[in-house]
């Protein structure tokens, strides 16, 4: 697939403080999540990609075009900034129509697009209420609405789930997934791992301005062979399974959960482990109710990579 966003050796400093360092990244259509703690460099990367900042070194291109001072690219790009700020005194509809006017759409089209965007983010009913009276979730959604009202191909969403209640989060996640299904390229940033997991498995881990890892969550997990994988098996025969697998040298530890009839194995050879498990199930009478990987989530991957 052709990369929509191409970043090459991007570095940016704020005086003596490092924003990002030598970031090289290709982003393709679909949802890509930038994941990292606060101050990792996610927002700096997004600001460079959206032409708010210039890199000290390197370059970024969207659809093959440079971004800084290139107004043509903003027809194809929508940006939802992290900050919770709006123009004084405007209501939701005025905010959207005002920003759509800046594209030069006709008045009728401005209205049509604004209402369509309000419908997408489920704010039609409160469109004429001042933004200052909106809840945090509504404000977040009106920010997303302004980013997608002109129907861009690329959406850059900086911490779109920040500060939202669970219901609003679900709404925003559903919206982002719908936009992905509509063929858009979406980059979201977050420092909350379960939120990212709910949106995508395509992640870029950023820490201290550098990219630690990039790819499918499970693929990244596979790269971490030096770290044990955890596999939890729930079975009425969990003790027998544990006894048989304990003999294998790639099983590093076994933890029992008698109250749940489950056992958790640690292994650094997941493929071999599952091969042997299949054999055991076929050879013996062991019935398995559930197999899960408790550490196969972003938090575990992130902790491993940053050496926690």
């Amino acid at each position: 697939m052709t990369a929509v966003i191409e970043a090459r050796n991007l570095s940016r400093w704020y005086g003596n403080v490092l924003g990002i360092s030598e970031v090289t990244l290709d982003i393709e259509p679909g949802i890509t999540a930038l994941l990292g703690p606060n101050g990792a460099g996610k927002s700096t990367f997004m600001k460079i990609v959206t032409g708010q900042l210039k890199p000290n070194i390197g370059q970024v291109r969207i659809f093959g075009q440079k971004v800084w001072n290139n107004r043509e690219i903003f027809w194809r790009l929508g940006f939802c900034p992290e900050v919770d700020s709006f123009y004084e005194g405007l209501n939701g509809l005025e905010f959207l129509t005002g920003l759509l006017v800046l594209y030069g759409f006709s008045p009728a089209e401005v209205q049509e697009r604004a209402w369509r965007a309000l419908e997408l983010v489920e704010l039609k009913e409160v469109a004429r209420r001042p933004i200052k009276s909106y809840s945090r979730g509504m404000r977040q959604r009106i920010k997303i609405a302004q980013a997608l009202a002109h129907d861009p191909e690329v959406l850059i969403l900086d911490e779109p789930l920040n500060g939202l209640d669970p219901l609003s989060k679900r709404k925003v996640i559903r919206l982002i997934k719908e936009l992905k299904n509509a063929g858009k390229t979406i980059v979201v940033s977050s420092h909350v791992l379960p939120e990212v997991e709910a949106m995508t498995s395509e992640i870029v881990l950023i820490h201290q301005g550098k990219i630690l890892a990039r790819g499918d969550l499970h693929f990244i997990r596979e790269l971490l062979d030096q770290h044990p994988h955890m596999i939890r098996i729930k079975s009425p025969h969990y003790r027998e399974l544990a006894r048989k697998l304990a003999a294998e040298d790639y099983v590093l530890s076994i933890t029992f959960e008698p109250e749940n009839s489950a056992v958790t194995f640690e292994t650094h050879q997941r493929d071999w482990f599952f091969e042997r498990l299949n054999q055991l199930v076929l050879e013996s009478d062991c019935r398995i109710e559930e197999i899960t990987s408790p550490d196969d989530n972003l938090q575990a991957v992130f902790d491993y990579l940053v050496g926690k």
């Binding site: 107004r71 043509e72 900034p81 123009y87 920003l99």
Partner: peptide, 15 residues
């Protein structure tokens, strides 16, 4: 001060 600059500078407008 109002942190609204990104709304403006991410539109197809010459500075």
């Amino acid at each position: 001060e109002n942190r609204t600059m990104p709304y403006l500078t991410s539109r197809p407008l010459a500075r």
